[in-house]
Design a binder for these strands. Structure first.
Length: 817
RNA sequence: GCCGGGAUGGCGGAACGGUAGACGCAGCGGACUUAAAAUCCGCUGGGGGAGACCCCGUGCAGGUUCGAGUCCUGCUCCCGGCACCA
C-alpha cells in the first residue's frame, strides 16, 4: 500500500486548527448565523462508534461549507454525562462515577478531534459539571414555582433489580430498557412534571417545525389528543353519578353496559353484597398483575359484574356496571360506557359475557363484528323514548355535534378533550444525577433559594440503593449528615430530597448553554439567545423521537413563558441519521463481534477516508451496512486527488499549469460546483462525493492540469476531507487555513452543454440517440430523427400520428402500424 | 391490529413522469513488472446473435399516460414505532 501520508498530515492540521483557534465561533456583524447542532452523546466506556460518527460528520460538512459561504456558524459539542452505566460500574467496582465519566469524556473528545470535527471546543458543556447543573436545578425551581413540578402518590414502574422507578418510555415490553429487568407497578410518592399542561401547544406547534414525517407523527400519537364528550350516568344506590369519556357520543343510544377500571374509586360503593367477593378477588388479581402480564393476557377479555346499575341519560335504561382490566384508570375518567355494536373491545367483552349488542349506526352487521367506520354510516335507533330528541339519519359528525349540544343543555355532559400523554415521572432513586434543590419541612417540599444553587452532589462510596420495595432508600438517603439540614427560609429543621433527576433533565436545555457557556447570570445570556436561536439543523438518532425531543420542547416552552427564550420551538430542522449495520448486515453488537472501531479504521485509512466513506455509503437517513472494502475505495479516490497536486517526487506536480482549461473541463467544474453545493444543502452527501469522483476521473488523465480547476476543486472537497484539502491548499501556495476561503460559485451559463444527447423513441421505446446542438427546435429534431436509419426501421412505414417533443431531451414518434 | 418508511445488477447505491443502473465495491481482461503489490486502460443486469442489432428487465397483479423505478388501486415481504387510550 502506498497511500498519501495521512498519518502525518492529519495530526498536523488538527494541531494547526487547535493552535489557531480556527473554529472559535465567529460573530461577525452583518453575516447570517447558522446553528448546527448534534445530539450530544452519553460518554460510554466503549467509546464512539461509527453510528454516532455518521451524524457528526454530516453536521461537520454542513458547518464547514456554511463557514466558507460567509455564515457565522455555531457548531458545539458536549456531554450528557449523568446516567446509569457509570453508576452501575461504580456499584460493581467502587470507582466513583465522576472518575469513570472523566475518562470516558477524554476518550470521546480525543476520538472526535481525531476525526477532524470542527467543533468550537471552548463551548464544551458537561451536564455533570456543578456550573452546568446549577442551571438545571434553577430551571427545576421555575417549574416548581409555576406548579409544573409536584409531588404525588402515583402508581409507578418500579424496577426491583435497578432499585429505581422508570418512566413509561424507559420500559420496553414490560422490562427495563437498561438491563432488561422486570418492572412492576406500585404506588409511590414521586416528583412529577406537568407536561400535560402543555399538551395542546406541544401538538399544535409541531406545524412550526421541519421534521421527519415519522417523528412528527410519533409525537402526535404520543400526545394522543382525542376530542369527544364527557357523559354523566346517574346511579341510584348509593345516589351519585358516573362520568365517562367517549369520542363517540353519537353511539350513546347503543350503550348496553358500563365498565369501570378495577382501581376506580367508586367500585366499592357500587358493589352489592352478593358480588363483593368476586369483585374483591378480581381487583386483587388485577393489582398483582404487572403491565407485561396485562398486555400478554389482553387477548382474553376478563371482568366481573358489580351488581350495580347506572341510568343512560338518553333513554333511562338501566345499564349493568362491570369492572374489567381492559379499562385503564389512567385514561379519561377510568370508566366507560360500553357500546359493543360499535367498538371492537366492547364487542369482544359483550360476546364473552353474553351482554346485548345493539346497532345504532347502520352500515355493518353488528352480529358479526363491531361496526366502527366513522366516515360512512347513519345513526339509527337513536331517538329518546318520548320522541323529543333524535339523531336518526345523521352522519357521525352531525350526530356528535347535535347530541353533545343536547347533553350540555340537559346538564348531562359536555364536550371534552383527552390525551394519551401522561405527566412526566421526574425522579430516580439513584446517585449519579442532579440533586433536587428542595428540602422537606414539616412534610412539605420547599424550594431552596436560587443563591444556594448548585446543590452539589455529596461525596459517598455507597452507590447502591438499599432497603426494600416497600421502603426503598436511594443512595443519597443513606447520607444522614447530608440529608439533615435547616430550611434557610424558615430556619426550621429540614430533610433534603434524596431522589435525583432522570437523565433527560440535562439534555432538555443543553443547546441553550452552548450559546453562553460561562454565563453567570442565568442558564443563557438573552442577547446570545436572541442572536443564535433557533437551532437551524439538528441531527441525531431516531431513538429520541419521543423522549428527549418531547421533553426538550416542553422545557423550552416553559422557558419561553418565563421570557428566557424568544422562540416557541427550539429545533427548526431535524434529521435522523440511519443506523450503520455491521459488515454482516446485522445490528452492530459486541456479542456478534461485528462492531467497527473508528480508531482502527483511522489507523488504516485515515480520518478523511473514514469521513468520506461514511457519507458515501448511502443516504444519510438510510440504514446501511458497513463495508471496509468501500473505505479502501474512497482511499484510492483520495490517493488520486493527492496525485493531482503532488508529483511522484513529493513536490508540487509539474502537470499543474496556469493555462486555461478546455471549455468541456471548465463546464464539468461548474457542474460540479453546482451539484456539490446543492447536494450539501439537501444533505445528499453520497451524490456530492460521486460528483467529486467524476471530476477527478476527468482530471486524472490530463497532462496539463489548470490551477483554475484544481484550486476550486480542493475547496469543494474540503468539507468532506478537510485534512487532505488543507494540505493541498497549503502546497498550492496558501498561507493560512482554507476554512474561511470563499466557497466556489458556479456560472449558470457555463453549466450548460453546447451539445445535448436527444433520446428518440418510437411509440415510447428508445430506438436511437442523437447529438444535437442545445436548443434545436422541434422541426429540426424531428427531421434528424426521421433521417436516422435505426428510427426508420422501427417506423416500418406506419402512419405518423403524433410527435412528443421535450426540448433538449427527447422526441417520441407515435405511429400506427 | 394500527401508524410511518422501504423493496432497483453479485453488493452499497444513482436516476425534474422523458436514454434505468451515475459513482463506488467485487469480478474479468489488458498494460507496466523478473514477479507480485500499487498504478493505469478496457469490460461487467439477464437472454439471443459472427455482427449491426434484437428481446426481457426496478417486489407481485392491474390501471392512468405518447412514455411509469417514479403517479393511482389492490396485494406480498422487510424495517421502525404504538399497542385494550374508550
Amino acid at each position: 500500500m502506498s497511500h498519501y501520508p495521512f498519518a502525518e498530515i492529519e495530526p498536523r492540521w488538527q494541531r494547526y486548527w487547535h493552535d489557531h483557534a480556527t473554529f472559535r465561533t465567529p460573530q461577525v456583524p452583518g453575516r447570517p448565523k447558522f446553528y448546527c447542532l448534534d445530539m450530544f452523546p452519553y460518554p460510554s466506556g466503549s467509546g464512539l462508534h461509527v453510528g454516532h460518527l455518521e451524524g457528526y460528520i454530516a453536521t461537520d460538512i454542513v458547518s464547514r461549507m456554511k463557514r466558507m459561504r460567509g455564515f457565522n456558524v455555531l457548531h458545539p459539542m458536549g456531554w450528557d454525562a449523568f446516567g446509569l452505566p457509570a453508576e452501575q460500574y461504580a456499584v460493581k467496582t467502587g470507582i466513583h462515577p465522576r472518575v469513570t465519566t472523566a475518562e470516558n469524556v477524554a476518550n470521546f473528545r480525543r476520538q472526535m478531534k481525531r476525526m477532524g470535527l470542527s467543533y468550537d471546543w471552548e463551548r464544551e458543556v458537561d451536564t455533570t459539571d456543578p456550573d452546568y447543573y446549577r442551571w438545571t436545578q434553577w430551571i427545576f425551581l421555575k417549574l416548581f414555582e409555576r406548579g409544573l413540578a409536584y409531588v404525588a402518590d402515583v402508581p409507578v414502574n418500579w424496577c426491583p433489580a435497578l432499585g429505581t422507578v422508570l418512566a413509561d418510555e424507559e420500559i420496553i415490553d414490560g422490562k427495563s430498557e437498561v438491563g432488561g429487568f422486570p418492572v412492576v407497578r406500585r404506588p409511590m410518592r414521586q416528583w412529577v412534571l406537568k407536561i400535560t399542561a402543555y399538551a395542546d401547544r406541544l401538538l399544535d406547534d409541531l406545524k412550526l417545525v421541519d421534521w421527519p414525517h415519522s417523528t412528527w407523527e410519533m409525537q402526535r400519537n404520543w400526545i394522543g389528543r382525542s376530542i369527544g364528550a364527557e357523559v354523566e350516568f346517574a346511579f341510584e344506590r348509593p345516589k351519585g353519578a358516573l362520568r365517562v369519556f367517549t369520542t363517540r357520543p353519537d353511539t350513546l343510544f347503543g350503550a348496553t353496559y358500563m365498565v369501570l377500571a378495577p382501581e376506580h374509586p367508586l367500585v366499592d360503593a357500587l358493589t352489592t353484597p352478593e358480588h363483593r367477593e368476586a369483585v374483591e378477588a378480581y381487583r386483587a388479581a388485577a393489582a398483582r398483575k404487572s403491565d407485561l402480564q396485562r398486555q400478554e393476557l389482553a387477548k382474553e377479555k376478563t371482568g366481573v359484574f358489580t351488581g350495580g346499575y347506572a341510568i343512560n341519560p338518553v333513554n333511562d335504561e338501566r345499564l349493568p356496571i362491570w369492572i374489567a382490566d381492559y379499562v385503564l384508570m389512567t385514561y379519561g375518567t377510568g370508566a366507560i360506557m360500553a357500546v359493543p355494536g360499535h367498538d371492537q373491545r366492547d364487542w369482544e367483552f359483550a360476546r364473552a359475557f353474553d351482554l346485548p349488542i345493539r346497532e345504532v349506526v347502520a352500515g355493518g352487521n353488528v352480529a358479526e363484528a363491531a361496526y366502527v367506520e366513522l366516515e360512512r354510516g347513519r345513526a339509527v335507533n337513536s331517538t329518546t323514548p318520548d320522541g323529543s330528541f333524535s339523531i336518526d339519519g345523521l352522519d357521525a359528525s352531525e350526530a356528535i355535534a347535535k347530541i353533545t349540544a343536547w347533553l350540555e343543555a340537559q346538564g348531562k355532559g359536555r364536550k371534552a378533550v383527552n390525551y394519551k400523554l401522561r405527566d412526566w415521572l421526574f425522579a430516580r432513586q439513584r446517585y449519579w444525577g442532579e440533586p433536587f434543590p428542595i428540602v422537606w419541612v414539616d412534610g412539605k417540599p420547599v424550594a431552596l433559594p436560587e443563591e444556594m444553587l448548585p446543590v452539589r452532589l455529596p461525596e459517598t462510596d455507597r452507590f447502591k440503593p438499599e432497603g426494600t420495595g416497600d421502603d426503598p432508600r436511594a443512595p443519597l438517603a443513606l447520607l444522614e449528615d447530608w440529608v439533615r439540614t435547616t430550611d434557610p427560609t424558615s430556619g426550621k429543621p429540614a430533610l433534603r430530597e434524596t431522589n435525583t433527576m432522570p437523565q433527560w433533565a440535562g439534555s432538555c436545555w443543553y443547546y441553550l448553554r452552548y450559546l453562553s457557556p460561562r454565563y453567570e447570570g442565568g442558564p443563557v445570556d438573552g442577547e446570545m439567545e436572541r442572536y443564535w436561536m433557533p437551532v437551524d439543523l439538528y441531527v441525531g438518532g431516531a431513538e429520541h423521537a419521543v423522549l428527549h425531543l418531547l421533553y426538550a420542547r416542553f422545557w423550552h416552552k416553559v422557558l419561553f413563558d418565563i421570557g428566557l427564550v424568544s422562540t416557541p420551538e427550539p429545533f427548526m430542522k431535524l434529521v435522523h441519521q440511519g443506523t450503520v449495520l455491521g459488515e454482516d448486515g446485522q445490528k452492530m453488537s459486541k456479542s456478534l463481534g461485528n462492531v467497527v472501531n473508528p480508531d482502527s479504521m483511522i489507523d488504516q485509512f485515515g480520518a478523511d477516508a473514514v469521513r468520506l466513506y461514511e457519507m458515501f455509503m448511502g443516504p444519510l437517513e438510510a440504514m446501511k451496512p458497513w463495508n471496509t472494502q468501500g473505505v479502501e475505495g474512497v482511499t484510492r479516490f483520495l490517493d488520486r486527488v493527492w496525485r493531482l497536486v503532488v508529483g511522484p517526487d513529493g513536490n508540487l506536480s509539474r502537470s499543474l499549469t496556469v493555462a486555461e482549461p478546455t471549455p468541456e473541463t471548465r463546464r464539468l467544474l461548474h457542474q460540479t460546483i453546482r451539484k456539490v453545493t446543492e447536494d450539501i444543502d439537501a444533505l445528499r452527501f453520497n451524490t456530492a462525493i460521486s460528483q467529486l469522483m467524476v471530476l477527478t476521473n476527468e482530471l486524472t488523465p490530463l497532462e496539463q492540469r489548470p490551477r483554475s480547476l484544481i484550486e476550486p476543486f480542493v475547496l469543494l472537497l474540503s468539507p468532506f476531507a478537510p485534512h487532505l484539502a488543507e494540505e493541498l491548499w497549503s502546497r498550492l501556495g496558501a498561507r493560512q487555513s482554507l476554512a474561511y476561503e470563499p466557497w466556489p460559485a458556479w456560472d449558470p451559463a457555463l453549466v450548460l452543454e453546447a451539445t445535448v444527447t436527444l433520446a428518440v423513441q418510437v411509440n415510447g421505446k428508445l430506438r436511437a440517440t442523437l447529438d444535437l446542438p442545445r436548443g434545436t427546435d422541434q422541426a429540426a429534431a424531428e427531421k434528424a430523427a426521421l433521417a436516422d436509419e435505426r428510427v426508420r426501421r422501427h417506423l416500418n412505414g406506419g402512419q405518423l400520428r403524433k410527435v412528443i417533443f421535450v426540448p433538449d431531451r427527447l422526441v417520441n414518434l407515435v405511429v400506427s402500424s
